[in-house]
Design a binder for these strands. Structure first.
Length: 431
DNA sequence: TCTGGGGTCCTAGGACCC
DNA sequence: TCTGGGGTCCTAGGACCC
């Protein structure tokens, strides 16, 4: 059996722990640059606010409605998430953190000693009490069915935050009331295809013969079908190294200047290098892209993407920033208004087995650069991110303060709440 | 005026090889 | 007139997830 522990409206609930005044109100949390709605409270969902709605459209779409909007505060959400996962690990031996707001537990063998329904209810109550986060727990013989169960636990108060599917009767009953589009692994495109075959509920799909599924759908869909029928085939993944790592941003305004773009690209490359080193990896392919604003139909649209192959796989900041900077020069076109850019690294392997380039002329230089990057990581860990950066990463100084702004401040977040749990200056006071 | 960021896997098609 | 069969690698794009 598998359990899925899923936070209810995670980002909104994190904020409400420290802002009880937000209880009962429609609350939304916004993406970077306060762009789109990425999380909604139940009240906001009931109003009909859709995920992904641009923030600036909310006022038009819901005139006269008071909606509380907050910038996203990933430092806070990440810390709250870590606390929740720590509690789950006290309850189950095998935990797979699936995303910031959910995790799977492999409950194999626990059925014999635990009443799983009670186990789930206790865990949900514990998380609520210790962290303040409401969670819903679904338990079933496959991960997909655990997901189905968690949705029932979330929707109906009668389940006391935990729903268990532990018999074929319960499975069929749960699936017969479950819209096909809510099934894990079935998105928009499959829904319209399935509907054309009169499949509306999850049970309609589950009851189709395997040959029919195989003929009409790609391979991964067959796994979903099996899982709906109680055959587990999505196993608990151990924590794996990333196969690709991306750092990209949209800009608050638009950028035309090549050097301003270069500063951003350098920071993305540097951040990718950090992420690589954190998982003890190196990469030998780098993709750099820049794009203008897709939504501005009045301006020229351009999207450019370039792959760079590194002769020797690397994770040091200097080499990756140099590569990215060179790519930018090949991509850049004069006179355009750029809105988005990013760096993706792939061809990722372990840093313990780097194949050196036969023509590498200066192996010592490479070693020095790697060692500098490791030292900088250490300083930034102790003293705060971006304490030390390459000159290429530095933004022009603010004329008023004389200080160079940080990369992390290059995005807008006007409605940001404090980092209550990670910054001593932000700790809440009680009068 | 203002429209996010980070992943995975699969497939189709083209270039190339024998 | 009639033009095979078997691969690899790469890229672009689409599907899905959070």
């Amino acid at each position: 059996m598998y359990a899925l522990i899923d936070c209810d409206n995670c980002f909104v609930s994190c904020e409400r722990v420290f802002r009880p005044d937000l209880e009962g109100k429609p609350v939304v949390v916004l993406s970077n640059n306060d762009g789109c709605v990425v999380a909604r409270s139940n009240e906001a969902k009931q109003l009909g606010i859709k995920e992904g709605t641009p923030f600036f459209k909310l006022a038009d779409e819901f005139p006269g409605v008071k909606i509380e909007a907050l910038s996203s505060n990933y430092t806070l959400y990440g810390d709250m998430s870590a606390r929740i996962m720590a509690i789950v690990r006290m309850y189950a031996p095998k935990v797979e953190v699936y995303s910031i707001d959910e995790c799977f537990c492999d409950l194999t063998g626990m059925e014999q000693t635990f009443d799983l329904k009670q186990w789930g209810e206790d865990l949900a109550a514990r998380i609520k009490k210790w962290v303040g986060m409401p969670v819903s727990i679904g338990i079933g013989p496959t991960k997909t069915l655990a997901k189905v169960a968690s949705r029932y636990a979330k929707t109906y108060a009668g389940y006391h935050k935990c729903c268990v599917i532990d018999s074929d009767d319960k499975r069929r009953k749960a699936l017969s009331g479950f819209p096909i589009g809510k099934v894990w692994g079935i998105g928009r495109a499959y829904v319209s295809k399935l509907e054309s075959y009169r499949c509306r509920t999850a049970l309609d799909v589950a009851d189709k013969p395997q040959g029919w599924i195989r003929m009409l759908f790609p391979l991964p869909f067959e796994n979903t079908w099996r899982e709906l029928n109680g055959v587990s085939c999505i196993d608990t993944a151990e924590v794996r190294d990333k196969k690709s790592i991306c750092t990209s941003r949209s800009f608050p305004g638009m950028i035309t200047d090549r050097e301003a773009l270069r500063t951003h690209i350098s920071n993305y490359a540097s951040r990718c290098a950090e992420k690589l080193r954190r998982q003890h990896s190196v990469c030998n392919i780098m993709t750099v892209f820049i794009a203008t604003n897709w939504f501005r139909k009045d301006l020229e649209w351009y999207q450019g993407m370039i792959n760079v192959t590194l002769h020797t796989a690397s994770s040091n900041t200097t080499e990756l920033v140099t590569a990215a900077s060179g790519a930018l020069d090949r991509l850049y076109r004069e006179g355009l208004n750029y809105k988005r850019a990013g760096v993706i690294v792939s061809g990722i392997t372990s840093d313990s087995a780097v194949q050196l380039d036969i023509f590498e002329s200066d192996v010592e230089r490479r070693k020095r650069l790697d060692s500098i990057s490791r030292t900088v990581d250490g300083i930034n860990r102790r003293m705060g991110t971006e304490t030390v950066v390459l000159a290429a990463q530095q933004y022009p100084a603010d004329p008023k303060t004389g200080k160079a702004p940080h990369f992390k401040d290059a995005i807008l977040h006007n409605l940001r709440t404090p980092c209550y749990t990670t910054n001593l200056h932000d700790i809440i006071t009680v009068d």
